[in-house]
Measured scan of single mutants.
Amino acid sequence: LKTAGVNTTDKEMEVLHLRNVSFEDAGEYTCLAGNSIGLSHHSAWLTVLEALEERPAVMTSPLYLEIIIYCTGAFLISCMVGSVIVYKMKSGTKKSDFHSQMAVHKLAKSIPLRRQVTVSADSSASMNSGVLLVRPSRLSSSGTPMLAGVSEYELPEDPRWELPRDRLVLGKPLGEGCFGQVVLAEAIGLDKDKPNRVTKVAVKMLKSDATEKDLSDLISEMEMMKMIGKHKNIINLLGACTQDGPLYVIVEYASKGNLREYLQARRPPGLEYCYNPSHNPEEQLSSKDLVSCAYQVARGMEYLASKKCIHRDLAARNVLVTEDNVMKIADFGLARDIHHIDYYKKTTNGRLPVKWMAPEALFDRIYTHQSDVWSFGVLLWEIFTLGGSPYPGVPVEELFKLLKEGHRMDKPSNCTNELYMMMRDCWHAVPSQRPTFKQLVEDLDRIVALTSNQEYLDLSMPLDQYSPSFPDTRSSTCSSGEDSVFSHEPLPEEPCLPRHPAQLANGGLKRR
């Protein structure tokens, strides 16, 4: 031991701790050491302190810390799992109470259905409401065949629209698609105040090879029609059969078919879209009749726009005509997947739907009320060519290029400059510069009032120099000039209409 001194630092001082000593042992101690050379000694003081209470040693090893962490984590996880189980049990009790009230408590799974309603004014964004509309049932219905791709499903009954099956008599087919079909039928007692009145209706139903998605689409269309409500110039929902059998959606019946066929059937002799010497046209149409058709469609679209509904496929083929020549817009409630459109795929009647699409819908897939206005301009062109085919002879690839360059279709022969300028306004490259349906209704209403009933179509000018029955994407082998976009001569082996020498072909294109 070194004694503290003047020249001794703290580091040089050493402390020796002795245990089991008493206060009597306190004092100075000297350590002597010697050898043959000499003797040396050092002294140190022993200080006795009071004994401290002994405390248990605390484990601070890493293993002990890990044990604490794992135990704490396990406890927290157990609490979370327990909370989830309690929540599930409570929510399951509430669901079972709800389904027992709906009398569908025996169901095993559900079809996820979404009601898609486009509400954005400047995009294709949609509001999806995840309302459960249908659930599968283990119960089988008697007297009705089961669908191959869709098991029997039981829908919640809506008393406002439900019609008993025994009050619906199915008739002949009116048309069909890939998985759905429409048949003519007679409904008894659609009007609650007149329970014995028989009404001719159209009934939409699924085919035998339909899938769950097809069922989902049909129900979504029905729900959309319920929500949009009734208007004179749209196909209205009349009722539905949802209980004890396949789903039947009952809508208004339009006896004169779609507008395109309606116009073609009323072309003057010699100007029909397909040469037929025995062709006997229906009643002749006046200019006022054509303007009235456009006015009614505009009114229907104005109503749909007021309900925040974007059609996305407005064309003469999707406008139906009733016995009283009332125009009714159809298929506005269809669920369309705008992100998976095949631009080169034709519709069932051979038309390319892209020829009715606005550039922003075609290139950027942006659907708005103003893109519907563009389609309405093409529909106007169809009306005043009596069912002509837009951009005849123009392949899709060429159409993309022409639209980007600002080309537009030429004025039809039997169309006034004012109406043609309306078409051109609908085809404005900037969507915000196109008229609204409200403005179109006002303009067409004024034109109808000024147009005489006696103004019949000028038969001295050809209505349509093209054969719409030909595929639109076909290139002409005998077109006049180098560019078949601006002219389209008859093919030698097929009868077509004579070309008027002083008139540019109706399907020609102009640059805006």
Score class of each variant (00 low, 15 high):
residue 166 D to G: 07
residue 167 R to G: 12
residue 170 L to V: 06
residue 171 G to R: 12
residue 178 C to F: 07
residue 179 F to V: 03
residue 180 G to W: 02
residue 185 A to V: 02
residue 185 A to E: 04
residue 187 A to P: 15
residue 187 A to D: 14
residue 191 D to E: 05
residue 192 K to Q: 11
residue 194 K to N: 14
residue 200 K to E: 12
residue 202 A to T: 01
residue 204 K to E: 03
residue 204 K to Q: 03
residue 205 M to I: 04
residue 206 L to V: 09
residue 208 S to L: 04
residue 208 S to T: 09
residue 209 D to E: 08
residue 210 A to S: 11
residue 213 K to I: 04
residue 216 S to A: 11
residue 217 D to G: 04
residue 218 L to R: 07
residue 219 I to V: 10
residue 226 K to R: 10
residue 228 I to M: 06
residue 232 K to Q: 14
residue 232 K to T: 13
residue 232 K to R: 13
residue 234 I to M: 14
residue 234 I to N: 13
residue 235 I to V: 12
residue 235 I to F: 01
residue 239 G to R: 07
residue 240 A to T: 03
residue 240 A to D: 11
residue 242 T to K: 10
residue 243 Q to R: 12
residue 244 D to N: 11
residue 247 L to M: 12
residue 248 Y to H: 11
residue 250 I to L: 05
residue 251 V to G: 08
residue 253 Y to D: 00
residue 254 A to G: 02
residue 257 G to V: 01
residue 260 R to P: 00
residue 265 A to S: 04
residue 266 R to L: 03
residue 268 P to T: 03
residue 268 P to S: 03
residue 271 L to Q: 12
residue 272 E to A: 06
residue 273 Y to C: 13
residue 273 Y to D: 03
residue 275 Y to F: 08
residue 277 P to S: 14
residue 278 S to C: 07
residue 279 H to L: 11
residue 283 E to G: 07
residue 284 Q to L: 06
residue 284 Q to E: 04
residue 287 S to A: 09
residue 288 K to M: 06
residue 289 D to Y: 04
residue 290 L to V: 06
residue 291 V to G: 07
residue 292 S to A: 08
residue 293 C to S: 05
residue 295 Y to S: 14
residue 300 G to A: 12
residue 301 M to T: 02
residue 303 Y to N: 12
residue 305 A to D: 09
residue 305 A to G: 06
residue 305 A to V: 15
residue 306 S to P: 01
residue 307 K to Q: 11
residue 309 C to R: 02
residue 310 I to T: 00
residue 312 R to G: 00
residue 313 D to G: 02
residue 313 D to E: 00
residue 316 A to V: 01
residue 317 R to W: 00
residue 317 R to K: 01
residue 318 N to Y: 02
residue 320 L to M: 09
residue 328 K to T: 14
residue 328 K to R: 15
residue 329 I to K: 05
residue 330 A to E: 02
residue 332 F to Y: 10
residue 332 F to C: 02
residue 334 L to P: 01
residue 336 R to L: 04
residue 338 I to T: 08
residue 339 H to Y: 04
residue 343 Y to S: 01
residue 345 K to E: 03
residue 346 K to Q: 15
residue 349 N to H: 12
residue 352 L to M: 03
residue 353 P to T: 02
residue 355 K to E: 02
residue 355 K to R: 03
residue 356 W to S: 02
residue 358 A to T: 01
residue 359 P to L: 07
residue 364 D to A: 06
residue 365 R to L: 15
residue 366 I to L: 04
residue 367 Y to C: 03
residue 369 H to P: 10
residue 374 W to R: 04
residue 376 F to C: 04
residue 383 I to F: 02
residue 384 F to C: 04
residue 388 G to C: 02
residue 392 P to A: 03
residue 394 V to E: 01
residue 395 P to L: 11
residue 397 E to Q: 13
residue 399 L to V: 13
residue 401 K to T: 13
residue 408 R to H: 00
residue 409 M to R: 00
residue 409 M to T: 00
residue 410 D to N: 04
residue 411 K to M: 07
residue 413 S to C: 10
residue 413 S to R: 09
residue 414 N to H: 11
residue 415 C to W: 00
residue 415 C to Y: 00
residue 417 N to Y: 13
residue 417 N to D: 09
residue 418 E to A: 11
residue 419 L to M: 11
residue 423 M to I: 06
residue 427 W to S: 00
residue 427 W to C: 00
residue 430 V to A: 05
residue 431 P to S: 12
residue 433 Q to K: 11
residue 437 F to I: 10
residue 440 L to P: 00
residue 441 V to L: 08
residue 442 E to G: 07
residue 444 L to V: 01
residue 446 R to H: 06
residue 447 I to N: 13
residue 447 I to V: 05
residue 448 V to M: 10
residue 453 N to K: 11
residue 456 Y to D: 12
residue 457 L to M: 12
residue 459 L to M: 12
residue 466 Y to H: 08
residue 470 F to I: 11
residue 472 D to Y: 06
residue 473 T to P: 10
residue 476 S to T: 06
residue 477 T to S: 10
residue 477 T to A: 12
residue 485 V to A: 15
